[in-house]
């Protein structure tokens, strides 16, 4: 993949194909980074400047692509509790896969990638700090694309997902899938732009950011109001006294009906669901069985999917600026 000269030692972002069994062209590429868990990947202060590739594809002109990508950036910028801002510099003939020192979004021939990959995002980060200094998004030129929802994969929807990665967000697991008879998985429904498998060709539902996405970007780029106005839920997931790693924990707001997810990470099975508006929450924990665990974690061997879906035994009240501690106990399948 992209080996980035002097940066690579501590910051190389391994781009690996996800969803080995996925049906063709329904999978994203994951951003699987092995990093210090305490080191957060994010941009420094200031506006993120990007170029747009000027390549035309059948059915999607360079200008239509530029506008769709612009709308996707605007969706993230419109999150009122996050400070990330973007500035489109203009068209470029440079490939989004080239090492040019500028952030580029464009079509590319992804010959080196699995044919199911719709788009890839690569990040260049500063060694030690985790600061993102460049990001490129390459859309697979071999895919049938559309910008008006009339057949083909929706450029704006896929751009929303990839820009989430550009900002430093990983995948979210708030979604349900089914196995296809022909192999692979199909999304039944999801409630996050960061689900690792895309909606079907022709769908434009992925354009909308959901509560989980807003919480994620606001957690990375918080306004002062966001930090004061939200709280978190944290705790451990255990099974028979042992820690459960890689469990998907979702906080459901009983008043707003919003869903925000997180995972247990590290050896002690700890999770934190952050960026939650105050209110009563129900906590649901499920195994990562709706997409391949390597869509979310590098160390998939540690991920435990052998337990039943469970709930915290009581309603959890989140208060502004405070953390609510809750432990969950699950049972084997």
């Amino acid at each position: 993949m992209k080996v980035r000269g002097t940066w690579r030692a501590a910051t190389a972002l391994a781009l690996a194909v996800v969803l080995a069994g996925a049906s063709p062209l329904e999978a994203y590429l994951k951003l699987g980074f092995s990093q210090d868990p305490d080191q957060v990947l994010r941009w420094g202060p200031g506006t993120i400047r990007y170029f747009v590739g000027d390549r035309d594809l059948p059915g999607v002109s360079g200008e239509a692509f530029r506008q769709a990508v612009g709308r996707a950036f605007a969706s993230w910028e419109a999150v009122p509790t996050a400070t990330a801002t973007f500035d489109e510099v203009g068209f470029t003939g440079l490939s989004p896969l080239s090492e040019d020192g500028v952030t580029t979004v464009g079509f590319e021939d992804l010959f080196d990638f699995d044919e199911r990959v719709l788009a890839v995002t690569s990040l260049l980060t500063r060694t030690g700090s985790g600061e993102i200094i460049e990001a490129d998004i390459a859309f697979n030129a071999a895919v049938a694309w559309s910008t008006d929802g009339q057949g083909g994969f929706d450029v704006e929807s896929i751009a929303v997902h990839e820009i989430g990665h550009l900002l430093g967000l990983g995948h979210s697991a708030i979604g349900e899938t089914e196995l296809r008879p022909t192999g692979g998985r199909r999304v039944i429904a999801s409630e996050t732009a960061m689900f690792p498998i895309a909606f079907s060709s022709g769908s434009t539902e992925g354009r909308l950011l959901q509560a989980d996405d807003r919480a994620g970007v606001s957690d990375l780029y918080p306004t002062p109001e966001f930090q004061q106005a939200t709280g978190s839920i944290s705790g451990r997931v255990q099974k028979g006294g042992a820690s459960v790693v890689g469990a998907h924990v979702v906080a459901f707001n009983l008043q707003t009906e919003d869903l925000v997810g997180s995972f247990t990470v590290g050896g002690d099975g700890r999770f934190v669901v952050a960026g939650l508006p105050p209110g009563p929450y129900l906590l649901r924990v499920e195994p990562l069985d709706d997409a391949d665990p390597d869509s979310f974690f590098d160390d998939v061997a540690a991920v435990d999917v052998e337990f039943r879906v469970g709930f915290a035994s009581r309603i959890v009240t989140v208060r502004a600026g405070a953390d609510a501690a809750v432990d969950l106990e699950v049972v084997s399948k």
Binding site: I174, G175, E176, R186, V187, I188, A189, S190, E191, F199, S200, S201, G202, S203, E205, L208, Q210, F252, L254, Q255, E257, L259, L282, R284
Partner: peptide, 12 residues
């Protein structure tokens, strides 16, 4: 009461 709903995919 409350419903935890997800956005359905095309054709569902």
């Amino acid at each position: 009461g409350a419903d935890a709903t997800l956005t359905p995919n095309t054709g569902t």
